[in-house]
């Protein structure tokens, strides 16, 4: 554990807490993309299958469980919890996440899994686990797209929603620093280039948002995206 990774994890947790608070306090899901959170839930469920097979640390296991439960409760609130679910604007949340996110990521994960030869010589179970892990890395990198597209529609960005996306984006940016740190200071560190590539892609997707977020913070005014 290094400081970048810890800050990254805390930023991730913080973003989830901000969103949970926003949903609970405002009892309102307008401007929030259900599709993004369903994608994140799928990311966590496919990545953390190692909860049952590999123990890293108490911290690691607790965080994984916390991510799954908190994301599941976000999905539950937006879908089913009255009165929040009535404020969810389904008509605006239109990104075709199966066709343009889940499908392509599944294809890409299968291709990279077999081309890299990763998992050859392992059991079928381990192969499936590796495949799911690779899939989750790809999917996480673009899971925020439905949310960013929804924001473009609304343009006026609520403070809490803005903060949520800012911390969600900072988390992967901090992970990049963590990978650089580990490369230098951890002997025998094993590189996962798919994770690096997707981590950079994920951070770049937020770049535009970061820019307008910073500008609005500096001006101290309302946050709105340009047309």
């Amino acid at each position: 554990m290094n400081v970048f990774r810890l800050c990254g994890d805390m930023s991730h947790v913080f973003s989830i807490v901000v969103l949970l608070l926003r949903l609970r306090v405002a009892k309102n899901a307008s401007g929030i993309s259900l599709r993004t959170h369903e994608l994140f839930l799928l990311v966590f469920l496919t990545r953390y299958t190692d909860l049952f097979t590999t123990y890293y640390s108490l911290y690691n296991s607790c965080m994984k469980i916390a991510y799954i439960l908190s994301t599941a409760s976000i999905v539950y609130m937006i879908r089913l919890s009255d009165p929040i679910c009535t404020t969810y604007d389904k008509a605006q949340d239109t990104f075709r996440h199966w066709a343009f996110a889940v499908g392509p990521c599944a294809v890409l994960a299968t291709l990279t899994h077999f081309i890299s030869g990763e998992g050859s010589g392992y059991s079928l179970f381990v192969n499936i686990q590796e495949l799911l892990w690779t899939f989750s890395i790809y999917l996480e990198s673009i899971a925020i797209l439905p949310q960013l597209i929804l924001l473009q529609r609304y343009r006026e960005v609520e403070n809490l929603t803005g903060n949520y996306i800012f911390f969600m984006g900072s988390y992967r940016a901090l992970y990049i620093l963590n990978w650089i740190y580990r490369t230098y200071y951890e002997p025998g560190y094993r590189h996962h280039y798919v994770a690096y590539f997707c981590g950079v892609l994920q951070t770049l997707l937020y770049a535009d948002f970061f820019y307008y977020y910073m500008q609005s913070k500096r001006r101290g005014g309302r946050f709105s995206l340009p047309t």
Binding site: R5, D9, H12, D50, Y56, N60, M63, K64, Y67, W133, Y175, N178, W179, R182, E186, P187, G188, Y189, R190, H191, H192, A195, Y196
Partner: peptide, 10 residues
């Protein structure tokens, strides 16, 4: 012991 790299991350 060999590091598991970014697989031990979240």
């Amino acid at each position: 012991k060999e590091s598991s790299g970014s697989k031990d991350e979240l």
